[in-house]
Design a protein around this nucleic acid. Structure first.
Length: 539
RNA sequence: GUUCGUGUAGCUCAGCUGGAUAGAGCAUCCCCCUCCUAAGGGGAAGGUCGGGGAUUCGAAUUCCUCCACGAACGCCA
C-alpha cells in the first residue's frame, strides 16, 4: 500500500474512533505548496468538525494525536485546522543526483508523439518590426521552447501576407522613392510607408535596374523587390533575436485560382450571397455574425486565403495549431475557428494566444507608436539599445494577456533596476564559486546535512522546477518560468550570504553545499534557456 | 451597445484548477563587506485584493451584478 492510502486509512480509522463514519473517497490528502507544511496535508478536520459540532481547530488537535504509523516521522495539527504529515527526510538525494547527471537535459521530456505548429510574428513585409512584434516574437519563441522541453515537436512558422492592399501600397511607395532618386515629380501614396529603409531599398533597386523602371507601369517588379527586401530585413532582425523560423508560408502561394475555386466549392454549403458579396455563415458556429469571403467587386477578402492557410497547416498533420496574435486580431478568433469547423476540424484544433498591447513610456509619459511616424521605436533599435536578453525578459515576465508598459528610459538605462540582472547575478555568483571550490573539494551529492531553512527551501525549489515548467507548457505562460527563476535566485542570494561553501568545520557539509550549488546553477541555466536568454558566467 | 482582456502596496506587476501570515521589484527609512562577486543580504514602513452580493468550514481565486480602463467589432489584413 502506498503512503497516500496508508494515511487515508489511518484517518478513516481515527475518525471512526471519534464517532464519525466516512468513506476513504471523502478524505482529501494533498501535497502542500510549502515545505513547512510537510509531505502530505489534509483538511479533514475542517470538513468534518461541523458534523460533530466541534471547532475545526479543536477537532484537528484531537484527530492528530491519535494518528501514528511507522511510516510517519511527524504528524502535526496547524491552525486553522490542517493536519500535516511528514514522511521522510532525505528525499532530495536522488533529485540532486538526477540534476547533476542530466545537466542541460534535466526536466526535458522525450518526444511524446505530438506535433504543434506555432505561428507568430507574421508581420506584413512592408516595413520594420516594431514593439508589438517584439513582444509576439519573444512570447512565440518562448512558448515554442517550453513546448519542446515538454516533449512536443514544434514547428515555428511565419505567415507572409504578401498579397492585397498593403503590398500595393508598398509597391507604390517604393516606386515613389525610386522616382525621387531621379528627381522625377510624383505623388507619394496617401497610405504609403514612410520608413527610411524604403529609400535604401529604392537605391538597391536603382543599382539593379538602373533607370529602366522609370516609365514602367507594371507594379509587379516593385512589389516583388520591395517585399523580398523587407522580408530579408525582418529575418535579419529575428535572427539577431535568436529566432529561426522553420517555415515561411506566402499568401501569394495560396491565392492560386485553382485552390481558391476548390475551397469555394468546399465552403459553398456554408455561404450565401448578399449585395453581390459572398458571405460565410460563421455565425452558425462560434461567430456573432457572418463574414464576407468575396467582395462585391469579385476580389477575395483576407479570410479566404487565411482559411486555406489554416487548412494547409492542419493537413500537415499537427495535433495543435497555435497562433500568437496581437490584441487587434481579437475578432479573428471565432471566425477562423468557425471556418475550420466547417472543414470538419475539432473546435480546439486552433488555439489563439492574444498578446495585449505594449504601451511605450518615455521620460514618464506615454507616446503613441505609429507604423508611419518616423519616431516609432523599432524592434531592432530596442534590441541594440537594451540587449536581446533584457528585451526578451521584459516581454516574458508578464502574462501576455496583460497590457505592458515598456519604460524605455528605464530599459535603455543599463542599470541594476533590470530584474534580469538579479537572476544573471545569481548564476554568475554560483558559477565562480563552483569553479573556485572544485579546486579544493569534490561535490558530495547527498543532502542529509543541508537542513537550514534556506537550504531546505532551495532544495524544495529545485524540486519544483519540473512542475513549474510543465505548468508553463500547459498554460502557455512563459511568465511562470520567469517568476520561478526570480524565486530561485532570491534563495540563491540568501544561501550565498548565509551559508559558506568553503571553510566549514565539517568537510561533508562543504561538499554537500557545493553539490547543491552545482545543481542550482544547472537549473537556472536550463530555465533561462527556455526563455531564449543566455546565462553568463561572470558579471 | 456587444464580445474579450485588465483592475492586488506610492509605481510596475506575481499569485487565480478555493486553503495556512496576500508576495516580489522599484521608490522611502535603518542596519550588514578582515572572509566564495554588496549588481547582494537583513529589517522597517506600505493593502477595504475596484464596489456590492452569492456559494463554502474557508474566496484575491468560483458565480452574479455594478463601476473604471484598454482592445476588437470594415466588402482592411
Amino acid at each position: 500500500m502506498d503512503t497516500t492510502n496508508t494515511i487515508k486509512q489511518l484517518l478513516r480509522n481515527q475518525l471512526e474512533a471519534l464517532g464519525l463514519s466516512v468513506s476513504i473517497e471523502d478524505i482529501q490528502l494533498t501535497i502542500p505548496k510549502s515545505l513547512e507544511f510537510g509531505d502530505f496535508s489534509t483538511n479533514a478536520a475542517m470538513i468534518f468538525a461541523k458534523k460533530l459540532n466541534k471547532k475545526s481547530w479543536d477537532f484537528a488537535l484531537e484527530l492528530a494525536t491519535g494518528l501514528q504509523d511507522p511510516t510517519l516521522v511527524k504528524v502535526v495539527a496547524v491552525p486553522p485546522g490542517f493536519i500535516n504529515f511528514f514522511v521522510s527526510s532525505n528525499v532530495y538525494d536522488s533529485l540532486i543526483n538526477e540534476i547533476y547527471q542530466k545537466g542541460p537535459a534535466f526536466g526535458k521530456k522525450s518526444f511524446n508523439g505530438k506535433r504543434i505548429n506555432v505561428e507568430f510574428v507574421s508581420a506584413n513585409p512592408t516595413g520594420e518590426l516594431h514593439l508589438g512584434h517584439a513582444r509576439g516574437a519573444a512570447v512565440g519563441d518562448a512558448i515554442s521552447r517550453i513546448l519542446e522541453n515538454d516533449g512536443y515537436e514544434v514547428t515555428r512558422e511565419y505567415y507572409v501576407n504578401d498579397a492585397g492592399n498593403q503590398i500595393n501600397n508598398l509597391a507604390l511607395s517604393l516606386r515613389s522613392r525610386y522616382l525621387d532618386l531621379y528627381k522625377i515629380k510624383n505623388v507619394f501614396p496617401e497610405d504609403g510607408y514612410h520608413s527610411l529603409g524604403l529609400i535604401d531599398i529604392a537605391k538597391d533597386l536603382q543599382t539593379k535596374y538602373g533607370d529602366t523602371l522609370i516609365h514602367s507601369d507594371d507594379l509587379e517588379i516593385f512589389r516583388r523587390f520591395g517585399k523580398l527586401a523587407e522580408l530579408k530585413q525582418i529575418k535579419k532582425v529575428l535572427r539577431q533575436f535568436r529566432i529561426k523560423f522553420d517555415v515561411f508560408t506566402f499568401e501569394t502561394k495560396l491565392r492560386k485560382p485553382k485552390l481558391i475555386k476548390h475551397y469555394l466549392d468546399l465552403l459553398r454549403p456554408n455561404t450565401y450571397v448578399l449585395d453581390e458579396a459572398l458571405f460565410l455563415k460563421t455565425s452558425a458556429y462560434l461567430d456573432d455574425k457572418d463574414r464576407p469571403i468575396q467582395k462585391s467587386n469579385g476580389e477575395y477578402t483576407y479570410l479566404l486565403p487565411d482559411i486555406i492557410y489554416h487548412d494547409d497547416k492542419a493537413r500537415r498533420g499537427y495535433d495543435q495549431l497555435i497562433d500568437v496574435l496581437g490584441a487587434d486580431h481579437h475578432g479573428y478568433i471565432n471566425r477562423m475557428k468557425s471556418a475550420l469547423m466547417m472543414l470538419g476540424y475539432p473546435k480546439d484544433l486552433l488555439e489563439i494566444e492574444i498578446i495585449q498591447m505594449v504601451r511605450l513610456i518615455k521620460d514618464g509619459v506615454e507616446f503613441k507608436m505609429s507604423k508611419r511616424s518616423g519616431n516609432a521605436v523599432s524592434m531592432e533599435e530596442l534590441m541594440n539599445d537594451v540587449g536581446v536578453d533584457a528585451v526578451r525578459y521584459f516581454f516574458l515576465e508578464k502574462a501576455p494577456s496583460s497590457h505592458l508598459d515598456f519604460d524605455l528610459t528605464l530599459a535603455m538605462d543599463h542599470s541594476t533596476k533590470n530584474p534580469l540582472y538579479y537572476i544573471e547575478y545569481a548564476h554568475a555568483r554560483l558559477f565562480k564559486m563552483i569553479e573556485k571550490a572544485q579546486k579544493v573539494i569534490t561535490p558530495l551529492f547527498e543532502t542529509n546535512l543541508l537542513t537550514s531553512e534556506v537550504e531546505t527551501a532551495l532544495l524544495k525549489c529545485l524540486n519544483d522546477y519540473k512542475k513549474e515548467v510543465e505548468e508553463a507548457s500547459r498554460a502557455r505562460l512563459p511568465s511562470k518560468v520567469t517568476n520561478y527563476l526570480q524565486r530561485l535566485s532570491s534563495l540563491v542570494h540568501q544561501f550565498y550570504v548565509s551559508s559558506r561553501v568553503l571553510g566549514n568545520d565539517v568537510e561533508a557539509l562543504s561538499r554537500q553545499r557545493l553539490a547543491l550549488c552545482i545543481a542550482t546553477r544547472i537549473i537556472i541555466n536550463n530555465g533561462l534557456n527556455l526563455l531564449g536568454i543566455k546565462a553568463y558566467n561572470n558579471m
